[in-house]
Design a protein around this nucleic acid. Structure first.
Length: 169
DNA sequence: TTAGTGATATCC
DNA sequence: GATATCACTAAA
């Protein structure tokens, strides 16, 4: 079953753990359908969160974070990797969830490479897009938390929020 | 451990 | 217009 607005229109701290175990589905231009089970997510929440791109305020890049839930936010990291986020919560309240890994592809840059997602997806909507969506198989999966990765610059408090969720083995 | 890579924010 | 920085990865 494809996940809809009810799922994403919640706080990122609720959506991020719930996304673990769900399936991200990508339909390529040639019709091939790729499906990958999500195994790791991270939440980025609000302007106070120094790890969130919205902490620098509303800029051309962070604009997507302020959009309605379900908006797709893709940005280029280190000049090489496209990182995929889904916007959650209330419009105008910047927050989202980073898809960090799938069962078969472990790493935020690797999952987008496999799914052939680049910045052309930025601003599209995962609720309505015909080439990218998220499905549930109805099962619940247990997770454990850890701190977020690659945000040493965010200061002790934000660096230590347990806002990464990982699928239990 | 380090190079590779280019968009972005922030400073002239 | 210049520059420092970065939610990463693969190779060594």
């Amino acid at each position: 079953m494809r996940l809809g607005e009810d799922f994403f229109h919640r706080d990122c701290l609720e959506v991020a753990p719930d996304l673990v175990g769900k399936f991200i589905v990508r339909r390529l231009p040639d019709g091939t359908v790729l499906k990958e089970q999500i195994s790791e997510t991270e939440a980025y929440r609000g302007t106070e969160d120094l790890a969130c791109h919205a902490s620098k305020g509303r800029t051309p890049r962070s604009e997507m974070l302020y959009r309605e839930s379900g908006t797709i936010y893709v940005y280029l990291c280190y000049g090489i990797h496209s990182l995929l986020n889904v916007i959650t919560g209330e419009k105008e309240q910047p927050q989202g969830v980073l898809l960090r890994a799938g069962i078969m592809h472990n790493g935020p840059g690797k999952i987008t490479k496999y799914l052939q997602i680049d910045r052309s997806f930025n601003g599209r909507n995962i609720l309505t897009d015909s080439d990218l969506w998220i499905e549930s198989n109805g099962e619940k999966y247990s997770t454990h938390t850890d701190v977020r990765v690659g945000i040493d610059y965010a200061g002790e408090y934000w660096k230590n929020r347990p806002w990464r969720w990982i699928l239990d083995n």
